[in-house]
Design a protein around this nucleic acid. Structure first.
Lengths: 84, 84
DNA sequence: TTAATATTTAGATATTTGTCTAAATATATA
DNA sequence: TATATATTTAGACAAATATCTAAATATTAA
């Protein structure tokens, strides 16, 4: 739970998830959406990976990232415990 | 959304919310549950307040804190946009 | 009014975090 | 093989964060 909330606690990372909601993207395509260096985006992707919020697959020289919505279920359940 | 995720990105603050789920508590009662100084807990309460995740009411020399679940609804809706 | 209790504010400090540039690695293509 | 493209790793640095102690503020009670 710690890793998930940590990953979600950054506007850039949340926006990456929004992008991947529409379709899978290569690391470079993701980076192109931001005014942030590629290494920084790579670091954000790493944090999202650790939280298992995204997965990736190597395709030639590209690395294609996909969202993993199953982890969102855990957050959902946690939130629901607060609904009265 | 930023303030909410920031507030939730800390185990102590999430535990404070768990405590308040059961019942309203004074600042000191909350602090008694942790091996952390009262000023630190006061700081955590401040962050939860800013995120509107808790409310408070002064009662004599005590300050009674309550959880505000309505904000959880916003997180819930955000999470749901990822459910396929 | 003085002392005790409850809480917050102020200021300091060590750790974590987000960002950068430069360099390394991996793959594709000429 | 040499060069170009895609991505990550390494290392540095400023800003944010969680914590502490000491002091300030507010309220109650003797």
């Amino acid at each position: 739970m710690n890793d998930i909330f940590k990953a979600l606690n950054d506007a850039t990372r949340r926006e990456i998830l929004e992008l991947l909601k529409s379709k899978d993207l290569a690391a470079g395509e993701i980076a192109d959406h931001f005014n942030i260096s590629k290494p920084s985006i790579s670091h954000h992707l790493d944090i999202l990976k650790r939280a298992d919020l995204i997965t990736f697959e190597k395709n030639g020289q590209f690395v294609i990232y996909s969202i993993n919505t199953s982890v969102m279920e855990d957050v959902l359940q946690w939130i629901l415990t607060f609904k009265k």
